[in-house]
């Protein structure tokens, strides 16, 4: 067995990460995708899975995944890793992805790498650590390597495929039923691109004073995702799910535009590896300027609208 990937999905759609994981996994040889779904809900996803390059898909259906969450999911996945002994099991980095990876690593006695940004054909992974100041090349020494990969680390190759399909049912053991999900409310998805997937991210901080309109206007002109500092999410100006930083999301877009954000270390931890960083801040001493490729000392309520107007004019 060459490589196994976990295919994330939400609201009946396969996530963008699956194509990215498949693209990395191909470097190790044949790719088997694992889809976990509620009873009777997998077939629709199988049709979607043929849009990515897979040799095989294993569909595991069980309502225990929704009812007992991580423990049940990890148990089902660990059983597959044990049965198939893949060279690597790739999972998209997210809060859930990393927790699953941790549990599977323990259950299968496998080495673990989290937040890789690259993986080569000899199974060596690259991680970017300490806010991008170091690049670490690491190797796992166990038969299977469990590796979580940051979203948008590669441009996925979307080869159509006709994978062999295997369907399995699953019942969680008592040990995996200790924590029970009572209710669940999915985060509301706005019309804008997902933060971790966008090529351009525009974030607003305390400097917006709660008015994100100029940030959103420019974001929409550029097809960008909107992020926020913790000061902005704590104040309730923007949803917590848009927070960028240590305790929010880590983003690494082509362009990151920080508006009215001071650049505290916890914020920088989530955006410092962006290819180009632009900052707009009234305070010339703001630490965000230390990492900015292009800094504007000025009022975001003047600079952003002018930039939007100028862009709209040049586009038409």
């Amino acid at each position: 067995m060459s490589a196994l990937i976990l295919i994330d999905h939400a609201a009946g759609q396969i996530g963008k990460s699956a194509g990215e994981l498949a693209t990395f996994a191909e470097r190790l040889g044949g790719v088997t995708g694992l889809i976990l779904a509620g009873s009777g809900q997998g077939d629709a996803l199988l049709a979607e899975a043929s849009k990515i390059a897979l040799n095989k898909v294993i569909l595991i259906e069980s309502d225990d995944f929704a009812n007992y969450s991580l423990a049940a999911i990890s148990e089902a996945l660990s059983a597959q890793v044990k049965a198939l002994s893949p060279k690597a099991f790739l999972i998209a980095s997210s809060s859930r992805g990393k927790e699953i990876a941790g549990r599977v690593a323990i259950a299968t006695d496998s080495g673990l790498i989290t937040d890789a940004i690259d993986l080569d054909s000899s199974r060596k992974s690259t991680q970017s650590v300490f806010g991008g100041s170091f690049s670490v090349l690491a190797e796992v020494t166990t038969p299977t390597a469990i590796i979580t990969i940051r979203p948008s680390s590669i441009d996925p190759s979307y080869d159509e495929s006709e994978p062999v399909v295997e369907k399995i049912s699953f019942t969680a053991s008592d040990r995996s039923k200790l924590a029970q999900v009572l209710s669940s409310e999915a985060a509301v998805k706005g019309g804008r691109p997902e933060l971790t997937e966008a090529k351009i991210v525009i974030s607003g901080g305390r400097g917006t004073n709660g008015d994100f309109a100029p940030v959103e206007e420019l974001a929409d002109l550029l097809g960008a995702a909107v992020g926020a500092s913790r000061a902005a999410t704590d104040a309730g100006w923007y949803p917590h799910t848009h927070q960028v930083g240590q305790t929010g999301k880590t983003v690494s877009p082509q362009l990151y535009l920080a508006c009215g954000i001071s650049g505290a270390i916890q914020h920088r931890a989530g955006m410092q590896t962006s290819k180009t960083i632009v900052a707009i801040n009234k305070d010339p001493e703001a630490p965000i300027f230390e990492v900015a490729d292009f800094g504007v000392v000025g009022d975001l309520f003047k600079v952003l609208p002018q930039a939007s107007k100028s862009l709209a004019g040049r586009k038409s």
Binding site: F294, G295, V297, K302, V303, Q306, S310
Partner: peptide
Amino acid sequence: KGVKIEDGGEAGNTLV
């Protein structure tokens, strides 16, 4: 080290 400009009224255009 990046470029840092002071907004003298044209920074939005310069940014673009």
